[in-house]
Each structure stands twice: as structure tokens, then as C-alpha cells.
Design a protein around this nucleic acid. Structure first.
Length: 121
DNA sequence: CAGGTGACTCTTT
DNA sequence: GAAAGAGCCACCT
């Protein structure tokens, strides 16, 4: 039945999202990597689209290394995410960015060098 | 089975 | 530095 059917991959993604502590955030790419889909950032977004019962607001888009921001297309949903995050004491910069060094919940230490999204072949 | 979609992210103009 | 292009990948129709 539509999205009621939660597949294995979906389940893993949602589980990772649930593991994000209050007041912390993770990027779509990080959630995907932890869930076993290193290049599945988009899939995370897809999964969260109809996700319920998970702190979806703690998943944000990566802007530059160390900085994230809300990437929800729907402006209403984006506004709601921001409000929810601010309730958890997550602050935004003037440019609507979130400091991952401060609020990131990623397992890897900030500033860890790694290959960029486009796999070097 | 094939083509379409997107709450992503990186490279190239 | 903004905009467009291009990979990516599970799910949907």
C-alpha cells in the first residue's frame, strides 16, 4: 500500500534517523552512508518524504564542508523543520546555515578527508 | 521490464 | 558566485 510498505533499505534509513540525538543533525549523505548506501543521499530524502514517527527534522542537506542547510523544496515544510530544530536549540547563521562541527551527529570526526561525491571512477 | 521521480551533492559553465 | 549539468539509487507507475 503505497508508502506504508517499508522496505529493508527504508527501514535501515529510518533507524539511522531515529538514532540522531536531540539537538543534533546529520546530512542526507551521512545518513545514507551509515545505512549502507554511500551514494544514496537522494534515497534518504525519498524515504523521509513520507516518514512518520521519526525525527526527520534532524536530517539536513550538506552545503559546504562543515555546513548544512535545509533543502526541503516545500517552503512550508522547510519552515516547519527550522522551527523544530530551533526548539532543539539548533541555531542557524544569518545565511540559514547550520554548523556541523557544533551540531553534527555524524560518526566521523569533522574535517575528515574523504573522496568527493563523484567517485573518482 | 522500462522509464520517471526526487527532502542530494558534486563538477563545470 | 550563481546556474546548469551530470551522476547516483531505491522506489513508483
Amino acid at each position: 500500500m503505497r508508502s506504508s510498505r517499508v522496505t529493508k533499505v527504508f527501514e535501515r534509513i529510518l533507524e539511522v534517523v531515529r538514532s540522531i540525538p536531540r539537538g543534533r543533525v546529520m546530512t542526507y549523505g551521512q545518513v545514507a552512508a551509515v545505512a549502507g548506501l554511500p551514494r544514496g543521499a537522494r534515497v534518504v530524502g525519498y524515504a523521509l518524504r513520507g516518514a512518520k514517527g521519526v525525527p526527520w527534522q534532524r536530517v539536513v542537506g550538506l552545503r559546504r564542508r562543515g555546513w548544512a542547510h535545509i533543502t526541503i523544496k516545500d517552503p512550508i515544510g522547510a519552515a516547519r523543520q527550522r522551527i523544530l530544530l530551533e526548539k532543539e536549540r539548533v541555531t542557524f547563521t544569518r545565511e540559514e546555515a547550520i554548523d556541523l562541527e557544533r551540531y553534527g551527529a555524524a560518526p566521523t570526526a569533522p574535517g575528515t578527508p574523504r573522496s568527493r561525491g563523484r567517485r573518482p571512477r
